[in-house]
Design a protein around this nucleic acid. Sequence first.
DNA 1: AAAATACATATACAATTGTTAATATTTACA
DNA 2: TGTAAATATTAACAATTGTATATGTATTTT
Lengths: 190, 190
Amino acid sequence: MKKNRKELFFEETLKLVVQKGFKGTTLRDIAHKLNFEVANVYNYIDSKESFLEGYLFNTLHEFCEYLDNIMTSSYSPVEKLKFVISKHVQYTIAQPYVVALFIYEWRNLKEPKLKEFEEKRENYIATVNDIIKAGISQGELREMDDKFATFMVMSSMRWLFSLVTNEENNINPIEIEKQMTDFIFKGIGK
Amino acid sequence: MKKNRKELFFEETLKLVVQKGFKGTTLRDIAHKLNFEVANVYNYIDSKESFLEGYLFNTLHEFCEYLDNIMTSSYSPVEKLKFVISKHVQYTIAQPYVVALFIYEWRNLKEPKLKEFEEKRENYIATVNDIIKAGISQGELREMDDKFATFMVMSSMRWLFSLVTNEENNINPIEIEKQMTDFIFKGIGK
DNA sequence: AAAATACATATACAATTGTTAATATTTACA
DNA sequence: TGTAAATATTAACAATTGTATATGTATTTT
């Protein structure tokens, strides 16, 4: 499969932006990395902002759609939660730089896109909260504050990208998913 | 206790930088928020960079010193880990915006400060890893990959600041610490 | 009251930023 | 081969950036 210039542009730019931050990456940085002149950047993107929007909303939509499918299934709360965790882990391992962008750079969106992003993400978390609340009330999860539990579950999964971007080691997605699930459900205690 | 202009400057600037990002906050933004002209900013700080350095290294040093004291104590691994968690929770609740700066903006440090920061932080994590490794080998913690366990424990604690900055509710530090400890040691399962 | 400190302003500058316009060259395909 | 599409260049722009200088006015301390 030949990798054309456009794919290369997006890959390299994504890495650069993750490394130096959105505001910290200039179009000239990007041009330099790809060995061409500044103006050429506009053969690939309409604006710096649109580059960010593209990745952020694609990712968000993919997660939301997947969660929708989980919610309209007949699985139990714990089973649903395991699907959510699986999705996060698998997506993060497949696209760690996109996730890094998602975590670190969403604040650079401009209105009204910023608000749209925040609302959709808030909606996603609220739905995960619904799963956890159901899990507690049905006795599948231990008694605890459901909002805090949701917050902790999301927090746990958020940083996984840095394990993938930093680690030279081979990553086994199946094993990472197992470890992640074990941690969230059983913790590290005995 | 009267709050002088300098304290006010640092408080407001910190909030602004956390909200808009370090690169996204201009000196003119800061001046505008404090109702004075740009040049006046230099009555409080030597440079934009030094503002960041100050907070970041103060925080890092405080955590490192505390961890040193834990390490030279005779507590068991699990007890040590509980002190680490307690420190993170208490500091985060007391200074959520400083923690947010710590998490989000360290990349804006310039060399050689950037490298110094990364090394010290890496060192901190390595020491926490030592605690967890000891905990596992002494049978206080369940059998698992110690590096991944460390990664997960740190990840869990990292985002707590956003709970404090976003929540209008009253935060009970004692209760949050209990919930955090329970999550890390027992997870959310039954 | 005088002196020192804290807090403010106006003005300027060189560098860097994202973006645009006009145009040239290479590559792929009918 | 010829034509369209992809990829490149050079040059310029208006705006914004962090920072510097020189100076003025309150406020506090002596």
